[in-house]
Design a protein around this nucleic acid. Structure first.
Length: 897
RNA sequence: GGGCGCGUAGCUCAGCGGUAGAGCAUCGCCUUCACACGGCGGGGGUCACAGGUUCAAUCCCUGUCGCGCCCA
């Protein structure tokens, strides 16, 4: 017997282990089943499960479990990525605690430490995914730093290099001075910062007293200025273009150039140009062939090497000693010193408060310094072409479709992808250098040495590139590297392309774009056919969850409190297309009620001897009640299936919830009670079998979203062995002959009971008081129905008996109208007739009002002439029904006197 | 500045040419033999605003206002 209540804590881990151990999550590459493959977007190995994971993984698990039940050979590929910067940061922090510096360990020693860390605490998230119930094929788990995946990375790098799609170049990059590495422009976020706009006077060379005033937010970069730019159309400066100014502090002579980048409306209309430390200035520098000295080093401290030679002493304007004193100072300190010096020299014309956008590193939060460095670049624009085409032609479809615009916008304007990172943890770039800097790219050192021998004509020692590749470089290969590529494995042939990628819109540029570019280039086909984009998880007030706000929700705590099923169902029910999910503990608590409801319904059935009956054929059921609920279940199956096919998780949840609670529990179980009580009759047994059948349908429909509670009930009832529901077939919608007739009858019973309940409640009949119901003007069919369902009506509407009114209307009765019949509840002395009169008047008015609305419509000749005939007919029918109802209510009122 | 999305019951949202819905909250009644994480019933909405198309607009079009996000 099922316990009084469901205990997730004692059930979940046991069931999960049972599934996992029995191979229920495993793909079946040797089967004939059609594959269904989802590649997990690999979570960061340093990560722990947050609400966003709970959302995306629940949705993926629902899809996987559903398709598996449909008989597909489901592969849900698990794994994590090595998260270069994040992981290196974690281990460095660990080392900090021990007072050890990374450099002291050396590269190999450090990497050993990272692996040790990975072994010990990496993959916490994979354990947490198990708590959520995620049915990943664990033996296939991969890590982007695995040997196989690393081989894929080397192969891709070498091939792209040979195809000219990877080059080494000196360009401006987003430099993170904290990590001392280049980072992706996608890992940079603009933050609004309150700063200043400093107006600085740059004297024009050879013109006493004439100067140009530039406005800048970063005065410290003036050490690296190589021009002043003015707009070509700006008449104020037209005469000065081609002349030179003397750069204060360094005394360097720099040109005044005309460039449309300078906005005459902004500041003074003249801007200083520092090509090595600003992206826009870099463009100006390229257009005008300007020198590009760097004046900040990897730590964003002042370095003078590239401007030292040109320092000049000019009284009142430039002092080499001052500049030399800046060497080694941070950006911030240098700014202070320089502003003070300019002020002293009376070159600072004005300072205004100014709010502007400053690039920050998403991770770590350091202010990004654009720096001119040599990096490896991948020609993303070339790779993007086929990816764009794949979406244009529909080979890859986004759901919802509007995200395709976001994808296109970004892909069509894609910048060269800087793939090198100045880190130790990651895939080391397979490039070696000769003594003269000649580069040799090969799969391994032996290959590089061989190339070097051919190149130099002699054995030559090489040194390997120190940098590693961007983590996304390896994640982009995930859909095929996990399947064994570059070896042409059977898995690769079977599971590539996958069916769908599920992720949040914030990740379109990362996973979706990269996987598509790499997949198309190396596999010649898209990595997945659909991309389902879901919203972000927010808190109850709609705020983005964040550590700093402290409004994050720990999914594990929610699971502890309410069970994984409740959390999963909540997330599912709240996932509408293109909507963010506002999640709170309260919502999970609410949906836990549904888990409990299902549990109690099952318990009730179990207590009434309901057990699955082998060979029960729903089509052969004879009883009306059985046929009705079987047919209703068929509708629910069709709705749930259609919803899942359309990624309408909210609809799937709503359809199963509605059927289970509002049909099966509220009505079917109530109607079934007397039958069950009848004991061992053939009718009762058929209804038990039908109830078992429908419960089986419910359990299967809900298993993808609530695997634990459904599996528990499934085993308890003996539908199959414990842990076998996950392998049970997804139900097919069963529709019965004459379902409409039966549906109409049950619909009538439900309305009949509902009317009596409403009347009783409204005129305040105490529930303990049972009354007879007398039928007036009822058709024979109605009388027959009322007799047939009298037991249910009696119990559910607290009616002593239903009979046909004979003779006069009793005094002091309440009345209600159901179709052609008027129901009379003799309640003399119990009810307040004024209340009853008011109630009837209201009903009457409502019917009249509706009738009038329809009448107005039908009175419109244009409507009758132009509207679809069935719509017109429908309205005629409505007018008739409302009119008759109004008449009957009117009559009821008159009888009341 | 460009783009996308959203304004429907107190809250969260569904509906998207012809009867305005759900869950929660609220109010009333009920410890009725599965379930008070429950049952029954009720109240509550000029569907942001203004035009237009249409026989008919919450739904389609245009504009306005408000909110959110992405890109620059």
């Amino acid at each position: 017997m099922l316990d009084k209540s469901f205990s997730p804590d004692t059930t979940e881990s046991r069931l999960y282990e049972l599934w996992e151990r029995s191979g229920a999550f495993a793909a079946r590459p040797d089967s004939n089943a059609e594959p269904f493959a989802i590649m997990i977007p690999p979570p960061n190995v340093t990560g722990t499960l947050h609400a966003g994971h709970a959302l995306t993984m629940t949705l993926q698990d629902i899809l996987v479990r559903w398709r598996r039940m449909q008989g597909r050979d489901a592969l849900w590929q698990p794994g994590t990525d090595h998260a270069g910067i994040a992981t290196q940061m974690v281990v460095e922090r660990q080392l900090d605690g021990e007072g050890v510096r990374r450099e002291a360990l050396g590269r190999d020693g450090f990497i050993e430490r990272v692996w040790a860390w990975k072994k010990q605490s990496g993959g916490v998230i994979t354990q947490q995914l198990r708590r959520l119930g995620a049915s990943l094929d664990w033996p296939r788990e991969r890590f982007t730093m695995d040997e196989g995946l690393s081989e894929a990375v080397r192969e891709v790098f070498v091939r792209l290099y040979r195809e000219g799609l990877i080059v080494r170049a000196k360009r401006l990059v987003n430099w993170d001075p904290m990590f001392r590495s280049a980072i992706s422009d996608l890992e940079v976020e603009s933050r609004e910062v309150r700063g200043h706009l400093w107006h600085i006077r740059y004297p024009v060379e050879g013109e006493d007293g004439l100067s140009v005033v530039v406005a800048t937010t970063r005065p410290e970069t003036m050490l690296g200025d190589t021009a002043v730019a003015v707009n070509p159309g700006d008449e104020r400066y037209a005469a000065l273009v081609g002349r030179f100014v003397v750069l204060p502090l360094t005394g360097r002579r720099i040109p005044i150039v005309a460039d449309s980048y300078s906005d005459p409306e902004k500041g003074t209309g003249a801007v200083k140009i520092t090509p090595a430390h600003d992206f826009n200035d870099f463009g100006v520098g390229e257009r005008h062939g300007l020198p590009m000295p760097s004046i900040l080093d990897a730590d964003a401290k002042v370095v003078l090497d590239e401007i030292e030679a040109e320092l000049r002493a000019i009284p009142g304007l430039a002092d080499p000693d001052f500049v030399r004193g800046l060497a080694g100072q941070s950006r911030e300190a240098a700014r202070k010193s320089i502003v003070a010096e300019l002020e002293r020299l009376e070159l600072l014309v004005a300072v205004e408060a100014h709010t502007h956008q400053v690039p920050h590193a998403e991770r770590g939060g350091a202010v990004i310094e654009p720096r001119l460095t040599v990096q490896w670049y991948c020609d993303a624009a070339k790779l993007a072409g086929p990816a764009i085409e794949a979406v244009e032609t529909g080979r890859v479809q986004f759901v919802p479709k509007q995200w395709e615009n976001t994808f296109f916008a970004w892909m069509r304007d894609i910048q060269p992808w800087c793939i090198s990172r100045q880190l130790w943890w990651g895939h080391r770039i397979p490039a070696w250098y000769g003594p003269d800097g000649q580069v040799f790219v090969a799969h391994d050192e032996a290959g590089a040495l061989e190339q070097a021998r051919a190149h130099y004509g002699a054995e030559t020692a090489l040194s390997r590139d120190e940098d590693v590749l961007d983590t996304w470089f390896s994640s982009g290969l995930w859909p095929f590297s996990t399947l064994g590529w570059p070896t042409q494995t059977a898995d690769l042939a079977r599971y590539y392309p996958g069916d769908v990628l599920v992720t949040g819109f914030d990740i379109i540029f990362f996973w979706v774009a990269r996987m598509m570019m790499m997949g198309l280039h190396f596999m010649g086909d898209v990595p997945f056919r659909q991309v389902f984009i879901h919203g972000l998880v927010r808190d109850e007030r709609g705020q983005k969850m964040s550590k700093s706000k402290g409004n994050g929700l720990d999914p594990l705590e929610l699971i502890d409190s309410y069970g994984a099923d409740a959390l999963r169902f909540t997330v599912c029910a709240l996932t509408g297309l293109g909507r963010d999910v506002k999640l709170g503990a309260k919502r999970v608590e609410e949906y836990r009620s549904f888990v409990t409801k299902l549990w109690n319904a099952a318990r009730f059935l179990e207590m009434n001897g309901v057990r699955p009956v082998d060979g029960f054929d729903p089509h052969a059921a004879r009883g009306q009640l059985a046929r009705w609920i079987i047919d209703e279940a068929g509708i629910a199956v069709a709705e749930a299936t259609a919803a899942l096919e359309a990624y309408r998780f909210d609809e799937y949840a709503a359809a199963t919830y509605r059927f289970t609670w509002n049909r099966f529990c509220d009505w079917f179980l109530e109607f079934a009670k007397p039958v069950f009580l009848a004991g061992d009759t053939p009718e009762a047994n058929e209804l038990r079998a039908a109830a078992a059948y429908v419960l089986g349908v419910i359990l299967r429909l809900l298993n993808p979203v609530m695997p634990f509670v459904t599996e528990t009930i499934w085993a308890e009832f003996g539908y199959g062995a414990e842990g076998s529901l996950i392998r049970a077939p997804w139900p097919e919608p069963v529709r019965l002959a004459e379902a409409e007739t039966i549906g109409a009858e049950l619909d009538w019973v439900i309305r009949f009971i509902g009317e009596i309940r409403a009347v009783r409640a409204e005129v305040n009949v105490p529930p303990s008081r049972v009354t007879p119901v007398l039928l007036r003007d009822a058709s024979d069919a109605t009388v027959a129905r009322a007799r047939h369902w009298s037991e249910a009506i009696s119990r559910m509407a607290r009616v002593s008996e239903v009979s046909v009114l004979a003779g006069e209307m009793p005094q002091g009765a309440a009345q209600a109208v159901v179709d052609e019949a008027t129901l009379i509840l003799p309640l003399a002395g119990i009810i307040d007739l004024d209340v009853e009169r008011a109630r009837l008047r209201k009903e009457h008015a409502r019917a009249l009002d509706e009738a009038a609305k329809v009448e107005r419509k039908l009175g419109n000749a244009d409507f009758v002439a132009r509207a679809k005939p069935e719509v017109v007919e429908e309205n005629r029918e409505r007018l008739r029904a409302f009119g008759e109802e109004a008449q009957r209510l009117q009559a009821a009122l008159q009888r009341l006197g």
